[in-house]
């Protein structure tokens, strides 16, 4: 049986830090990371070294670190934020990432996601945290293949993969 023209791949583990704090904390983190934390939900900023920061709400960010140095980053951030109300938590194992790519990946993803992911409103660089079938995902469109990175809770790893493969409809 044929299927939609799209492929699913599990990405290697990344580091993730969950960052909470007010505008002052946001500024300090931006300075320390050399990466400006967006102020509004469902925006992201990418740094040249591959770090990505996703804004979840106006006092909540998730920082993705790809070089495995999340503990160092966490320590540096903690030092910078001493005395300020904040919460920085290592959540590297909370999430796993799936890469969905191919000309029909939008058709596949829209079987599980109710938000609008049409390229007009969800072009490369767009992100959103939204319902993903029976769980939640951070969605990130990275190119106009199109390719979507779907970040889900790690206990839902198998569920998310099975779901996407079923949606693709390959035999």
């Amino acid at each position: 049986m044929a299927g939609y023209d799209a492929t699913v791949k599990i990405l290697p583990h990344s580091g993730f830090l969950d960052l909470r704090g007010n505008a002052v904390v946001r500024q300090i983190c931006s300075d320390v990371l050399g990466l400006s934390l967006p102020a509004a939900a469902n925006q992201l900023k990418t740094a040249t070294d591959g770090r990505i920061v996703y804004c979840i709400s106006n006092d909540h960010w998730i920082l993705q670190i790809v070089d495995g140095r999340q503990n160092d980053v966490l320590r540096t951030l903690e030092q910078a934020a001493v005395g300020l109300s904040h919460s920085f938590v290592d959540v590297s194992d909370m999430y796993i990432q799936i890469r969905l790519s191919g000309p029909e990946s939008q058709e596949v993803l829209s079987q599980a996601v109710s938000i609008d992911i049409h390229p007009r409103v969800f072009p490369p660089g767009a992100t959103a945290r939204a319902g993903f079938a029976e769980t939640t995902a951070q969605l990130h469109c990275v190119d106009d293949a199109p390719t979507f990175i779907v970040t889900v809770y790690s206990s839902y790893r198998q569920y998310a993969i099975d779901l996407l493969n079923t949606a693709i409809g390959a035999a």
Partner: peptide, 10 residues
């Protein structure tokens, strides 16, 4: 107010 319009099941 943070995410815009979303379906009630979120």
């Amino acid at each position: 107010p943070h995410c815009g319009e979303r379906n009630e099941d979120e």
